[in-house]
Design a binder for these strands. Sequence first.
DNA 1: CAGTATGTGATAGTATTACTATTATATTTG
DNA 2: CAAATATAATAGTAATACTATCACATACTG
Lengths: 223, 223
Amino acid sequence: MDQLLQSVKIGINEKIYVKDPESSDLGKRIIEQSILMIDAMGFESFTFKKLGAKIGSNESSIYRYFENKHKLLLYLASWYWGWLEYQLVFSTNSIADAQQKLDKAIEIVTKTTVEDSSFSHINEVLLNKIVINEYSKSYLTKEVDTENKEGYFVIYKRLVTRISTMITEVNSDYKYPSSLASTILEGSLHQHFLKGHFSSLTDCHQDDDSTKYFLHLVATTIK
Amino acid sequence: MDQLLQSVKIGINEKIYVKDPESSDLGKRIIEQSILMIDAMGFESFTFKKLGAKIGSNESSIYRYFENKHKLLLYLASWYWGWLEYQLVFSTNSIADAQQKLDKAIEIVTKTTVEDSSFSHINEVLLNKIVINEYSKSYLTKEVDTENKEGYFVIYKRLVTRISTMITEVNSDYKYPSSLASTILEGSLHQHFLKGHFSSLTDCHQDDDSTKYFLHLVATTIK
DNA sequence: CAGTATGTGATAGTATTACTATTATATTTG
DNA sequence: CAAATATAATAGTAATACTATCACATACTG
């Protein structure tokens, strides 16, 4: 992506934050540094107190932006999925052929994230790593149904739905378009995780193997 | 499963526990009640103090069996995967035809768990729910590489490897047997989760839909 | 220009968690 | 019966995840 994205703001459910972090310098530093810290120390060890120390601010000030670190994770994840969705829509919009369109979509969502400097304070490569390592924790909770009703997962759901629709447009007889779409998204994160920690459980060792694996899987499945 | 399993003990890495919970009555109560509690309140809210109160014992006594609740989760998960592996090996052992064997394996690992009273103190239905909701948290940690080296995930890995081998036996030219095997196991948990909380993201709404989905997916993919 | 609202920082305080340590008591085994 | 072992009870600690209050600086408003 390039300049274009610089003027686009990823629209995130306002209930996720107390105060929009994009609305101030402190807010942006919270986002920027929380990405670095969560990547470095993991979500469990990350605290608002440590973040405050890192950005030369106070714990209590961070609470003015996010109720708790769970909400911050929801924010980061929503941002990431929104960013991916933008790329997906942008890149597939002009493709007429349904199969080609789906292939492009699979490529976008399964590929390894590379440097993108469109958003100065957000490191997309690290954010992708965070999503791989922490995203499941955002919905594997007892509060998932309430939070889902509040709309905290809409962007992710919309992304799955988009892919599901593209699958149906290639083959309207295929019975499991939503399951296949969710398998692609979740499975892609999982394959990237395995690559880093359980390499014997995957055949995806190069950067683009994951894309090849899913392209083949989907093509044959809905043929 | 039936009587047979009653005399089989699921072999779990001894480093996971301080004292084998199968070796005492208190140990068995810890396992039995922790399953009920984690299912009811979720892993985050579950504490050894609450468990102690529930089983009429003391927090400190539970620490004599498990270092912390993370290790207890690893124990429960290992037990579950060991139990599944046993069923898989038992049910597929006598099948000569490679395709039939793989189909049986997929059926075993993707189906919804139903009542099994072989192990009096372990409720397999609830344990399956716990694995669906909490298993990812056991490996999505900063300690995963160390713990993997310690062998805390061997049973799960062996299970993936078994399925991977079966895939190769059906089609030795297929390039992604391990990725496909891990996609089946992880994807199955995910589809069951979606069924309960994000039903618009899956087409698996009946108990056996997940099995049908994966049977079709695998059959077409490696054809 | 005074007054007020807003944003941020500093400090303190609370309940809970995740332990560790010690001691007492009960039970089992040799 | 003595010794070892298992369990229970109590206390204590550092850290976490907040909440509340107050102070201060800046900005904007009538």
